[in-house]
């Protein structure tokens, strides 16, 4: 891993009722693709919005820090934060259908960010918008630039969102489930595009997804999030080959493209009672109610994410202990 670009540590996001993200930390290196994986409601979007400092008004960051290029974003005054948004960190959202303003042409919406951060004239911004549409492989960019969003398909709109996001060559692009609303063939195209742009523009990519299937192909590193806490963090290859946390194992088993490689039966998660919603009130490990190997000690306090071997972090003491035993057995 190269130098850290983004360093989130012990982030806790609290609402008047409940703390959907608690003590969560991870890091992204320059030019790296980090996938943040977790089921619906695990706090992925909230984490992304916290990095952008765009959380809903009722949310409060109770603790933690978000380091970005030597600054703590959480300590930045709002006007300075506005210079980070869209210029150094850009974000694209899950729903391309509703994420574009229906009454402005796509060209104007792309130009807006260029005029704001790069001070381009209307004319120059328009020219650059056309180039950007071309860059994200929109056909006939000089025509599309004057189109309103409702004339474009979902895939096209997501490309426009991407063009808007990369317009100022950000250092970090946060893509919150960028392909969930798209059909499978378009999904691959959009992910390909994101990956190509990451390489060409030298950005890092935070790829939020609940689909482990896309992780192996696109991500360098994976962070698994469960009920707002880090469960496991590892390089993509090793994590898929050898998942350690029971939740990661379950996720992989439920992932249709990968189940052939594993012995777990699909749907194993469904047999475990409870859901992510009930997990938040547990004093101990949030996965306990659904975990087949839970020990009494798991119910006492939430386990921290700890390095069990180089580049491999795990928040499951029983598994960690087992790994340790295996390792020393091999070593002896």
């Amino acid at each position: 891993m190269t130098a850290k670009l983004l360093d989130v540590s012990s982030l806790t996001i609290a609402f008047p009722r409940g703390t959907p993200v608690a003590d969560f930390g991870f890091a992204i290196g320059e030019g790296e693709t980090v996938a943040v994986v977790g089921e619906s409601g695990s706090g992925k979007s909230l984490t992304a919005l916290a990095i952008m400092r765009l959380l809903p008004r009722t949310a409060r960051i109770a603790s933690g820090s978000i380091g970005f290029r030597g600054r703590d974003l959480l300590a930045l005054p709002e006007p300075d934060m506005r210079k980070v948004r869209g210029r150094e960190i850009a974000m694209i959202f899950q729903e391309p259908m509703t994420s574009l303003n229906p009454v402005l042409t796509v060209g104007k919406q792309i130009a807006e960010v260029l005029r704001l951060h790069e001070g381009l004239s209307a004319e120059a911004a328009r020219k650059r918008s056309i180039e950007l549409l071309d860059l994200v492989r929109v056909a006939d960019p000089h025509l599309r630039v004057d189109d309103f969003p409702h004339r474009l398909s979902g895939g096209m709109r997501q490309r426009v969102m991407i063009a808007m996001a990369v317009a100022c060559r950000p250092k970090l692009l946060i893509a919150d489930e960028p392909t969930t609303a798209l059909d499978v063939t378009i999904q691959a195209q959009v992910l390909d595009l994101l990956d190509r742009l990451r390489r060409e523009l030298g950005m890092a990519l935070m790829l939020i997804t609940h689909d482990l299937g896309i992780v192996g192909q696109w991500a360098d590193r994976v962070v698994v999030l469960y009920a707002g806490r880090g469960a496991e963090e590892a390089d993509a290859g090793p994590l898929l080959e050898d998942p350690l946390h029971p939740y990661t194992k379950g996720l992989l088993a439920a992932s249709p493209r990968l189940d052939a490689r594993l012995h777990y039966t699909a749907g194993a998660l469904r047999e475990i009672p409870g859901s992510i919603a009930t997990a938040q009130r547990e004093p101990g490990c949030p996965f306990v109610p659904r975990c087949a190997m839970a020990l009494p000690s798991c119910r006492i306090s939430p386990p921290p994410l700890e390095e069990i071997r180089p580049r491999r972090l795990l928040a499951c003491p029983p598994t960690a202990a087992q790994e340790q035993a295996n390792a020393s057995a091999v070593g002896r």
Binding site: M52, R82, K83, F93, T98, L100, M164
Partner: peptide, 16 residues
């Protein structure tokens, strides 16, 4: 609406 969040994510000031 989502597009207002998009506008905020661009770094636009509240008045704009």
């Amino acid at each position: 609406q989502d597009y207002v969040r998009t506008a905020a994510a661009k770094g636009l000031p509240p008045l704009a």
